[in-house]
Each structure stands twice: as C-alpha cells, then as structure tokens.
Design a protein around this nucleic acid. Structure first.
Lengths: 207, 207
DNA sequence: CGGAGCTTTCAAAAATTGGTGAAACTATGC
DNA sequence: GCATAGTTTCACCAATTTTTGAAAGCTCCG
C-alpha cells in the first residue's frame, strides 16, 4: 500500500523499494551525502536565485527537492545541505510562500515531507507575475507621477528648457518601462497557456 | 564659444544662459535642491537597479545626470543626493565601468563633468550581455557538467530510478536555461541593431 | 614652484543580511 | 493526558555590503 512515500524506519538511509541502495559507489564528494550532480546543480541554481534577488539557500533547497525521487523531511535537507534546523524551516516556508515547494501530509507520521513544484514554467511565471511585474508597475506609476509633478512645475514657472528635457527623458523611461511590462505579460501569458511549451522566440519591429 | 558646458563661476547655483534661474518657484521638496520629478524618478530607478542587482545609488546618480540639462560635477551630485564625497566618486566610477556615465573633459577647469549615457537600449543590452548572459552561460555549463557526472555515476552503478529521474530533470533545467539564453540573445541583437527601436514583441509556439 | 579646488583612495564604522541554536510549540503514539 | 519526535520562532551572532570622512593625489593658475 502506498501509505507512506518513504519507508519510515530508516531515517538516515531509507531503503529503496525497487533499486539497490544509493550510496554504494559514489564517484565523488560523498562526504555530505550529495551526489556530484546534486551539488553542482544546486550551486548553479543557488547562484541564479541570488541573481534574481532570492536567497542562495532557497535555490539550493529547491534543487535538492527537485532532484530527489521522493519527498524529503526537513531533517534530511538539513543534513544534506549542512544547514541549521532554523534555516531549513525558514527557507522552506519562504519557498512555500512562493508556491514552489509543497508539503505532503502523511497520516501516521509526524514528519513533514516536502516536494518541489516540478512545473518550471508555473514557477517562473508566478515569480514574474508577482515580483517583477509589481516592481515594473511601481516604476511606471512613479514615472507618471513625475510627469504630473513636472506639469505642475511648468504651470508655476521654471526653466522651460529643463522642463522640456525632463518631459522628454522621463517619457522615454516610461515608454521603456511599458515595453518591459508588455514583454513580461507576453511571457506570463504564454507560460500559463502551456506549461510544457518550448517556444520559438521572436522580436519584430513595430508596424 | 562652447568652451565650457556650464558657466564655471557659479559653483552652487550656476546661472543658466538662456532661461531664468531654476530655483524660482519649486513646487515641493526644495530642501535638497531636487525637483519633485527628479526625486521620484531617481528613487524609482534606484529601486529597479536594486532589483537588477546594482546599488541603489548607482540608479539615483545616473538618473540625476540623465535628467539634467547640463553636465554635473561630483560636488553637485553630492549636494543634490546628500551623499559623501567618497560615495559619489565610487558610484561614478562604477557607473563608468558599465559605460553608462561618461566624463566630459573641460580644459581650464579642474572639475570633472559627468554625463549620463542617454541611449537606454545601449545600456540595457550591455548589461544583458555582460552580466545576465554570463550568469546563464555559467548555469548551462554547470547543468552540462552535472549530466556528465550523472553518466559517470550511472556507469559505476547506483540507483537507476534516481539516476533516470535526475537525468530527466537536469535535462529540463538545461533546456530552460538554453531557452533563456536565446531570448537574451534575441533581445541583445535587436537592441544593438536599432537603439531607438520600439518593438512589437511576440512569442509563438515552436514549429 | 606652491596654493586652490576637486577627486580618489581606503581604513574603519555602520547598516544590512543571513544563519544559528535553544526554547517554545504542535501533532502523534501510547 | 503525557511523553516524544519534529517544526517553528526569535533573540543573538557572524559575514557581508555600504557609507563615511579624512588624507593623499591631481590639475591648473598665477
């Protein structure tokens, strides 16, 4: 019966039901219980996450879950990544807030099992929508406000040359921000429409 | 003769050659010598720069220069943004390393005058090319390395199920990263080709 | 030259961010 | 209930990043 995703008795090295045990011949870096492939990918994803403004550990934890063939407990993540219990807990709840990691509820087991969201486009479009999109929206509003402030100043008098220059340049920033917004929206719409999507990407001139 | 970009005698409030003095009727926030429009835009750009992994002050300084109708000295930036002299100097040299601010050399004036790069696409494509592009390239290589490590492990024996799962999932990450790379390349190519470019943006399915 | 006026450098301070681990808390099993 | 295994919270600590300001360095003028 598939009552439990893993065999609950072997906390440290749970026996695998169908295959031989995992640790039999680790090519390299067996010291922390991570495969070389897991180590390399989790570091790369961690760096990408930092580039995106998230914490490195969010990327690392997500990757370990994504590359695991079974749900993992907080304890297991803690060991594999050499993190404190607090860090694992906080990282997991942040990941959960972004919807990229989910808990699996196993009756009769007090541990929480965690699973990575496997749909990459779903994850990405969600981040784009909630984070990038909001940020660019805020910038657009700021630029619009600035243009309004400029008109107020123009009415009250001031350097016409400077006002005209700012009008033009803030206008360009606004135009650029709106372009960015529509690019994001296009990405998000496509990602939502078809998650397995491997697109051909094109840019064309206006008209 | 256009020997000097501004009248060098009025350090604090240089007289404008063609228009009336700027400070005559500031609508709001005259305390730091910034117009409301400048304050709002520089904050917004500063936030966007943080999102992109740069320092807030880089965005603020660039914006003030971008919205100025004449080159500015370090001193003037220092006053307008209430920064220390060191901060201004370091921020300007960072901006210069990215090629988004240039110095104007005025013989017979010991001050440096600074001008913002006004070509937004040039700036953006440069950042995409040098920063994002490199980062994603590194990730692609890491994923490829991880797949190779996985094959080594497969030959030496190990959980076939886990190896197969990782092969598939790392493969998906790799595919996604390659897609991101081609999107970046498309953006960069278009931005280079035509800097005033206001594109229509499209995504289409493969095939 | 030597002084005036700016800019740059850099060590130290301040601020921010991230991580730790023990205590508090929660959900089972007995 | 109560003990137990696991999770979350949080005050504190460590590492990193940012900012400061004073000293050193330039450049031009007289």
């Amino acid at each position: 019966m598939p009552s439990s995703p893993i065999d609950p008795d072997g906390a440290q090295a749970p026996p695998e039901p169908l295959a031989e045990r995992e640790g039999c011949a680790d090519t390299e870096a067996p010291e922390d219980g991570l495969w070389e492939s897991e180590r390399v990918v989790s570091e790369a994803v961690g760096r990408l996450m930092v580039l995106w403004g998230f914490k490195r550990n969010m990327g690392r934890v997500w990757t370990i879950l994504f590359l695991s063939d079974r749900p993992l407990t907080g304890r297991q993540l803690q060991e594999r990544l050499s993190l404190s219990s607090g860090a694992v807990s906080m990282t997991l709840s942040e990941l959960a807030r972004w919807g990229v990691v989910n808990k699996e509820w196993v009756p009769g087991d007090r541990r929480d099992y965690h699973i990575a969201e496997g749909n990459l486009w779903k994850m990405i479009s969600r981040v784009l929508r909630e984070r990038e999109r909001g940020e660019i929206e805020g910038a657009i509003e700021a630029f619009e406000d600035a243009l309004a402030a400029l008109e107020r100043k123009a009415r009250r008098g001031g350097s016409q040359a400077r006002i005209e220059l700012q009008r033009e340049r803030i206008g360009r920033l606004l135009e650029l921000a709106r372009l960015g917004r529509s690019m994001l929206d296009a990405l998000i719409a496509n990602a939502r429409m078809d998650a397995t999507w491997l697109p051909r990407f094109r840019l064309g001139r206006r008209g």
